[in-house]
Design a protein around this nucleic acid. Structure first.
Length: 193
DNA sequence: CTTTAGAAACATG
DNA sequence: CATGTTTCTAAAG
């Protein structure tokens, strides 16, 4: 599945007072219920939750202050199916992301997209990868504000000492995601010669 | 209401 | 305890 990205800095967003139309919905996924949302320009939000989802929705609102939110369950159902489709069905589908964040955050998130499933990286390595080796703590902050869980694999970022580190919607879920990915690394299929 | 300054908060090392 | 960035609050214009 090809993933393309469009970015909007917080500055740009503030400049245009024109409301952005966002369609959202709650859906079950293999990793628990999730809130998923998209703008006309692409998928803009994906977040797991354990409760009623009220907090998740509030977070979406906060991320897109200018947005005009509109629930459309059937529309998001399609999107959710595409996102969580098994790799065999990915084929040539493209999925467009619409990211909003500061320059620094965008840098971190885009970099994260380059990390293949099953592979881990430390906050420190990630900081080095974006050419700001000292901004380790800041990277942690940016990763934590990743608006699109799962697709932007923030769960693959762990501490340098090997411990799992944190996860916004539950460390348990981070583990689940990693275990699941490890399981998909079928022995023999990951060593193309 | 808009802008600014300063402090506190962070999924770390 | 230092690090870089973001967010929040309070105060001023």
């Amino acid at each position: 599945m090809l993933i393309t990205t469009e970015t909007t800095t917080t500055q740009q967003l503030d400049r245009s007072a024109e409301p952005i139309h966002i369609i959202y919905g709650n859906h079950p996924t293999p990793f628990g219920p999730a809130l998923i949302a998209f703008t006309p320009r692409g998928l803009c939000h994906l977040d797991f939750f354990d409760d009623d989802g009220i907090a998740a929705l509030a977070q979406l609102r906060k991320n897109w202050p200018q947005a005009n939110l509109c629930e459309d369950h059937s529309a998001t159902t399609t999107l959710t199916q595409q996102v969580f489709a098994p790799p065999s069905q990915h084929d040539s589908q493209t999925l467009r992301l619409h990211l909003r964040g500061t320059d620094f955050q965008l840098k971190v998130w885009l970099r994260l997209l380059h990390i293949p499933p099953g592979q881990l990286i430390s906050y420190q390595e990630l900081a080095q990868a974006i050419d700001q080796p000292k901004a380790v703590r800041a990277v942690g902050g940016a990763v934590g504000r990743n608006p699109i869980c799962y697709l932007i694999p923030c769960h693959r970022v762990v501490r340098s000492d090997g411990s799992i580190g944190g996860y916004r919607s539950g460390i348990a879920r981070k583990k689940t995601l990693l275990v699941s990915e490890a399981a998909h690394q079928e022995p023999g299929t990951d060593t193309p010669t």
